[in-house]
Design a protein around this nucleic acid. Structure first.
Lengths: 238, 238
DNA sequence: CCTTGTTCAACTGTTGAACAATATCCGGTC
DNA sequence: GACCGGATATTGTTCAACAGTTGAACAAGG
């Protein structure tokens, strides 16, 4: 996997921006330009629209979406804060590249948070139902053969696991960790080979949780995380 | 405790800004205006310079520090992202007010993270030394009678506890949780009465950790957190 | 008395232009 | 090929301007 070092160029995309703004406007008042831009950029980045390390020059991007440099800068600053972009003074921002060390830190945090969530899970039927739903989401995507969606479902599964702890702060932390992790997922050569085994393993974890056997669930979860870290580390190192 | 609803006004303070920038410049190249402003505002907020709910109008603040509205906006947006400020479209930003519900969420996350850190602590002598140092910092501040510093030392203690997990992500989460918590600490009528008992309790936890008795340490820590939450909840509710 | 416009001042959201500061590229020199 | 100076491109920062909203004061009407 080569590292994309160029910078993204494109003609005017104001329509994409407006469309995204409309989608955000689903509920409350018209979203702000900065809010829209932040959400749009975030989506594009985690979708892998700009390979790791890609420069995002202020002028081209602001022209592309027909927004001012100021609004764009505010949006990018937020994404830097979320660790999806990295910023160097007078050198601009680039899409974050997740290296082996980063992976280690991500999984270290995940082990603590997810395992704790499982061990201390309250008997919350609703929260467990979300876990089960994520498992099914993955199985259906697998039947349809859409392996990218299987990957997304796997992230949903772990987000649901975290939610068992009932802490919005931990939910938010996991949201960011998984977004960061998704950056690394783009380097996978064979998504199916990576994701498929976890369908059954997640199913088993969900079943153990439904039976109330938290210790066994935590143990299985920990093994999953260890394996995933090993595989991803190998993939990223290559 | 009355809730400050006014907005902060003050004459020009460019000197304060420059001084802070110089302090930040200790190591690397001259810090950016936005970086400086973010750090300065963050410090002022957690020091309680602007009571909870205080409005921070863009124009007065930017004039006060002689920086542009844009730079100020970027700084404030970051602090909103850190949950120290809250933002409402067209209504500006206010200093966050931590209510009883927020306290519950903060402590729920702290219980998970800190207890997990203690239970899974590696036998890292350096990390334990930091814990011990925080205990001593509190004891010395108590001897000097500076109870605000005792409170700060207590936060350092819990930060050091979290560091036992060896995860930069968890360290960062705890940094934010404790910053949020500090907002609530300002409502304490009698800091000494609140902080003093924890000097000995923290000492005991550190001792248990040094002996390698993680289970007992985790148990003691959990009790501490429960008590602190109860006290703070009562204080905030009043 | 309460509710419903109406008006106005204050503030935020957003943009464009301009200039300073710095990094990067490029050609010349040794 | 390594080092140096200047041209160029980007980022950092400010100022000025204007459209949109909010909040409050106030008038009109039931």
């Amino acid at each position: 996997m080569t590292i994309e070092q160029g910078s993204y160029e494109s003609p005017i995309d104001r329509s994409v921006f407006d469309q995204f703004a409309a989608r955000l406007a689903g509920d409350l008042p018209r979203p702000t330009v900065v809010e829209t831009m932040t959400a749009l950029l975030r989506q594009e980045i985690i979708d892998g629209a700009y390979g790791p390390g890609t420069r995002l020059p202020e002028e081209s991007l602001s022209k592309r979406f027909r927004i001012s440099r100021h609004s764009l800068r505010e949006a990018m600053r937020l994404l830097v804060h979320e660790r999806l972009l990295v910023h160097e003074t007078h050198r601009g921002v680039r899409v974050r590249t997740v290296d082996v060390h980063d992976l280690g830190e991500i999984f270290a945090a995940r082990r603590v948070v997810e395992c704790a969530a499982v061990e201390r899970a309250s008997d919350d039927g609703a929260a467990l139902a979300v876990v089960r739903a994520a498992v099914r989401e993955g199985q259906q995507a697998a039947e349809a053969g859409v392996w990218a969606t299987v990957g997304t479902a796997d992230l949903h599964f772990h987000q649901a696991i975290t939610a068992l702890a009932g802490s919005s702060h931990l939910d938010e932390l996991m949201r960011r960790l998984l977004a960061e992790l998704r950056l690394a997922l783009h380097v996978l050569a064979d998504p199916r080979r990576f994701h498929e085994p976890y369908l059954e393993r997640n199913d088993e974890i969900a079943t153990l949780l439904e039976r109330g056997d938290r210790t066994a669930a935590a143990s299985a979860l920990r093994t999953c995380l260890d394996d995933a870290e090993r595989q991803l580390t190998a993939a990223v190192a290559a």
